[in-house]
Design a protein around this nucleic acid. Sequence first.
DNA 1: CGAAAGGGTTCCTTGAAGAGACGTACCTCT
DNA 2: AGAGGTACGTCTCTTCAAGGAACCCTTTCG
Lengths: 153, 153
Amino acid sequence: MQRTRFGDMACSIARTLDVIGESWSPLILRNVLVGIGRFDQLQQSLGISRKVLTERLKWLVDNDVLERRRYSERPPRYEYALTAKGTELCDLLMVMVRWGDRWTAGEAGPPVLYRHHACGEIGHVELHCSVCDRPMDVTCIDILPGPGAAVTA
Amino acid sequence: MQRTRFGDMACSIARTLDVIGESWSPLILRNVLVGIGRFDQLQQSLGISRKVLTERLKWLVDNDVLERRRYSERPPRYEYALTAKGTELCDLLMVMVRWGDRWTAGEAGPPVLYRHHACGEIGHVELHCSVCDRPMDVTCIDILPGPGAAVTA
DNA sequence: CGAAAGGGTTCCTTGAAGAGACGTACCTCT
DNA sequence: AGAGGTACGTCTCTTCAAGGAACCCTTTCG
């Protein structure tokens, strides 16, 4: 559908979307995270077309979000795993889960729960300020131009 | 492109993607957040096709992420604004910004900065556990099935 | 040997994205 | 009164990616 490329916009949201903005990518990431990392497993569990899966995996590998590694020499077999860059992307997944749980889960309740190693409890993510550690959301910040801002008229 | 619908998967990520998974939606949200809420403004600042913008806005309004409100009676004029549901989605934007800043900003540095009202400093978001307030990411949790999990064989 | 598994590739069809012309209601200027 | 401008879309046409399914290659198993 001749998708507009976002990669060179002066916006970190656009650049992030350029990497994982395509709808299947977060789901692929989620599955790789929970250990579903082989081609056929991914294809079947997501119900994605094999062609599109091939394209997405290649894109994610080229963008250093996933790595493709051989887990068997003979016969040659491969699986996909998260890189450091990809692991940090999972923050995004956790925030998506949080929002989805709050606004779309309905009667049944959340489909998955997180148990935090540090406290052993079932919790969810909250956004805090990296400086003062207090809660931070879009209603309690000012948005200022940064060094990488585009010079706009 | 006969996109697969995610809305009825038993997965909060999929359901969140169903609402804002299309690539333009987060950018529309970002613009509405910073006060760019009128049709022509959005169309010009994003470079999106008018047809697609119409479709996206309708989808976001129907899903209660944005509201369309009249700010002038005669001539009739409308603008789009965030609902509570949409405002909480901005958490996602902040996490995208954080990842984009870290991994894609390059030489120039981040295009925007956040000043946190609570401390007055420039900071970024970090994910903390809702129970113990300590940092939480995907490497320090167990993922358990919740009440809304699909019964899979 | 034939069949199956893993990991893709190739081909065709359909339908959404993009571009841009057009429409409508209103206001302002001369 | 007419010309021009603005805000907010709708319509039409073309192009290109998603979806679906068949096919391919290598290796192992019965």
